[in-house]
Structures are given as C-alpha cells and as structure tokens.
Amino acid sequence: MSNAPAIVAAQEPIRRTPVAVLELLRGHRRVAASFVLVAILFLVAVLSPVMSPHDPLAVSPDSSYLPPLTPGHVLGTDELGRDLLSRILWGARVSLPVAFVAVAVGLFGGGLIGLVSGYAGGITDLLLMRLVDALLAFPGLILAIAVVAALGPGLRNAMIAIGIVAVPVYARLVRAVVLQLKQMEFVVATRSLGATPLRLILRHLIPNLLNPIIVQVSLSAGFAILAEATLSFLGLGAQLPTPDWGQMINSGASFLNNDPWLAIVPGAAISITVYSFNLLGDSLRDALDPRLRS
C-alpha cells in the first residue's frame, strides 16, 4: 500500500478509499458474492413498491390458500388471499432496516462502552461493566419487551429495544479484545513513540477490533431479524397490517399442517437474509486480515 506522494503524510487521515473497497471486491470472490447477495436484498427492499405484482394488503377471500407456483401468485397466497410474494418483498422494507438500525444501536452503544471500559480501566471500567452486567441479567427478549413497553409499541421502538439488547454483547466483546490488545507489545511500542490515546485507538485498536466485530455484526443482524419477528408477533413491533416476515411466520404457523408454505416462505426469506449477512461477515473477516491474504 503506497501513499500518494502529494499528500502530507502526517495529516493524512483516511487511507481506505472507495478504490480500496473495489479492489477488495475484485480480489475476493466470496466477499464479492456475498456483497452482491446483501446488495440484492437491499435493492429488493428499496424497489418493492415497483417489483410487487400485487398490493400486499389487498384481501381477496376468493383466492385464499393458493399454493406456490399458482399463475399470478408465484409464492401462493395466505389465509386472506394476500399475495405472498408481494408481502415478502414489502416485508424486506421492515426487516432490513430493523436489522440495520438495531445492529447500529448495539454496535455504537456497546462498542463505545467497551472501548472506554477496556481502555480506561479502573473505576470507569468497574462501573460500566456492572451496568452491562445488569443489562445482561435479563433474558434478551424480556429486556426488549420491557423497553418497548416503556417506550410504547411500534417498529421504531422495537429497533431501539433490540439494539439495547445487543449492547452488552458488543460491550463485553470490545472490552475483552481491547484488554487483550492493550497487553500486546505493539500497543506499548506505539505509546513509546509518543502517540496520543486517540491515535492509538483509531490506528491500532479499532483496526484490530474489526475481525471480531464483523463476525458479531453478521450474527446479531440475524438475531435482530428474528427478535423483531417475535416482537411483532406479540404486537409490540410492526403493527398490523404491515407486512412483516416475523408476523407472517407466526400467523402461518397455525396452518402448518395443511398449508405449510405460509410459514415456510417467510421462514426462507429470513434464512436467506441471515445467511447472506453471515456469509458477508465471514468472508470479510478473512479478506481483511492481512495474515490470511495470499
């Protein structure tokens, strides 16, 4: 990696330019494939109004329980005759933002706590960690329900609640890694050069935190989608009649004996989404680690 000669080295803040991202995609097929997969998911969410063959809310009792591959209804219809494909496409508009926002809340909240806690140590660490322990003491879903109950039901509050549940996970993870890194001699070496704490954190701690964080993000994105489904089922998340994958599974579950696709189709949508995120996380972790580069 060479620095453009024109730039004053000492004041050069960003080195991973968009060009670097393109290079990454070109050099790593698995990253490229999973990146495309996730991109498609987002595209679906954005374009669902255009792509949907039907109104996802349009009830038509005449055509209820149509199996998949029925002409006009590729994925079939549900008990109220609503087109499943349209509902799945519209559902992506709910699930993906939830995953995104919830993970962001968890990552930034937890990451910050972990970083401060691990770096500062002492009494700060003690207090922050007891706070995190308190959060961790509640089962995740109960905590989410409590938060939503306090904030009021609705999709936005559900996202925040799920994000808060993820905070302790990130806080503990980041703190553990920071504590480990702090012991590493290269961190001491950087301090011996006269680096400021900010530089140490930005240049050395955060890049070395990427691996575990990326893996955790892909895992908790999956968790967030599932948690949102549960909250919606309880009436605390997406409000009826918003098409939502979780709700679709839950309502479809009652018809599992005769019309299993009502649950299978949204289930598959969740699986594919979770898998895409995991794949992206996994391949990014390998690609970003210089030790694994060929």
């Binding site: 590493m184 001699e185 290269f186 001491v188 070496a189 950087t190 011996s192 050395h204 890049p207 070395n208 680690d289 210089p290 030790r291």
Partner: peptide, 13 residues
C-alpha cells in the same frame, strides 16, 4: 524501546 517478541510487537494490520 525494542521488544523481545518480534511477533507481538508489530501491528499485524
């Protein structure tokens, strides 16, 4: 300062 462990004392990234 120069360290003992030439593996831990250089940032792998």
């Amino acid at each position: 300062i120069i360290f003992q462990d030439p593996f831990a004392s250089l940032d792998p990234r």
